[in-house]
Design a protein around this nucleic acid. Structure first.
Lengths: 257, 257
DNA sequence: CCCTGTGAATAGTTTCACAGCA
DNA sequence: TGCTGTGAAACTATTCACAGGG
């Protein structure tokens, strides 16, 4: 696996922390909303509130991009929209393919948030011949036989996998072999990819499980409180009852790896 | 708004780090697969590979749960499945409602990963009268007028929001008022909730944007043929605006695999 | 003054490396 | 001997608090 090789000489002129990168889209969305309301400038405090983070964090994040604010005033909304877009690479066009057109694939194809950023759904691909030719979100579904050609004809470097888990790895392999170097995986499987290929995963049930964990803590917390009969207290072995967890509104997206 | 508690006791007891909690579902999935293949025990090295993490991390994670392994041997698969399930609160039944039955809501309703864990879709709710009564994943969609009654009748404490962003906050408010204390939000909006309510969000376009960021770096990388000479003033100061990307070193893969 | 930008302090996470038990 | 469990070190991220420009 990862082989610890390359020990980056720590050259860090332009090294934006992962945690910051993961928040840039958040700021961008908030800024876009302000822009649509023709708000000209915004303070770190206001923008932070709109993005759901705290202002010190936001200022620190922006400091990695450069000094784009004006002391005593705030940030110019349009300028910041542009800078963040550029930093994220959204000023260019990213053709994307979605493989596996079930409900989830269709949901993604219809999702407005893609087109409004730099993403363009170049193709929808499915292995089921019955799906081929069907229109989803105004795009004709193509059969997976042509996957390689579709990738190279469209210069696709980002692929989205929304197939059943059983075929996700082989779809992934084909995507990578065809030239895709970034994959967003919705299938509940661990994908293995060669060095140089990025994978991010979104796992629907993991998020729920994390919520359940915290929910359970809450339930245990009100120890003596006789709540409704809806929640059966599971009394396993010697339980701890003390649970403490900073409730916390701003948990970033899915999970930085 | 961190308000809430000052700081946790922090000492020993039962404070499992968030990062660890977020990985437990991953381990659980890998273990479940092993269990289905009737594998009796597994070493940290093997399990880590299956879950896509490194073994030191996995052992550290497990050490927060207790000492469930056997030195020189590994972990008992069934026992660990049980322990993790219990820790995550999956040994109890979690009725869940999904609000907003578009493609995404339907995808979630059909998602097998829920039922197989402790989650049960108690109701599908939509504001569109045309959806009411329609069957999705074998469950009849109910109108949102009855939301409060559905929540309390079923003792629901976890809600999933898959509505358009414009109505997400009001749906959220109603869920919370009706007693929901954990929310999984798929709408691209920042939800505000009272203290004590957990919100996690899954944002499809954010993930793509993060990929685009790294993808852009890769593309610019070949330009950096010249060795990055002496590190410029560490301060990252100066060198403001302009200059499209002065890409440098590599960005490690998001997920070593 | 107000608000940004940022060093310094703190908190949280990962990795190392090895003691110790089956 | 082989593998877990865990302190300690290294690294990353967040928060504080204030210097300093507008």
């Amino acid at each position: 696996m990862a082989t610890g090789r390359t020990h980056r000489p720590a050259t860090r002129s332009r090294g934006i922390p992962e945690a910051t990168v993961a928040r840039l889209p958040l700021y961008l969305r908030a800024l876009t909303a302000l822009s649509e309301r023709s708000v000209p400038t915004v303070s770190s405090e206001e923008l932070a509130a709109a993005a759901g983070v705290n202002s010190a964090k936001l200022r620190k994040d922006f400091s990695y991009l450069g000094s784009y604010g004006t002391r005593g005033v705030g940030y110019d909304v349009e300028y910041l929209v542009y800078q963040i877009s550029r930093e994220l690479g959204l000023t260019q066009d990213w053709p994307v393919v979605i493989v596996g057109i079930g409900n989830l694939g269709a949901a993604l194809a219809n999702y407005g948030g893609f087109a409004s950023r730099g993403f363009r759904v170049a193709a929808l691909i499915d292995a089921d011949p019955a799906m081929t030719g069907r229109q989803v979100a105004g795009i004709a579904v193509q059969h997976s036989d042509g996957l390689e050609k579709i990738i190279s004809d469209n210069g696709v470097s980002i692929g989205v996998i929304t197939t059943p888990p059983g075929v996700a790895q082989q779809v992934c392999d084909r995507l990578v072999a065809a030239g895709v170097t970034s994959i967003l995986n919705f299938a509940p499987t661990v994908l293995s990819v060669p060095d140089g290929v990025d994978v991010r995963k979104v796992d629907l049930s993991i998020e729920l499980q994390i919520l359940a964990f915290h929910e359970q803590r809450k339930a245990g917390e009100e120890a003596a409180a006789g709540t409704d009969g809806g929640a059966p207290a599971v009394a396993a072995r010697g339980e701890s009852a003390s649970a403490d967890k900073g409730p916390d509104g701003d948990v970033p997206a899915v999970m930085p790896a």
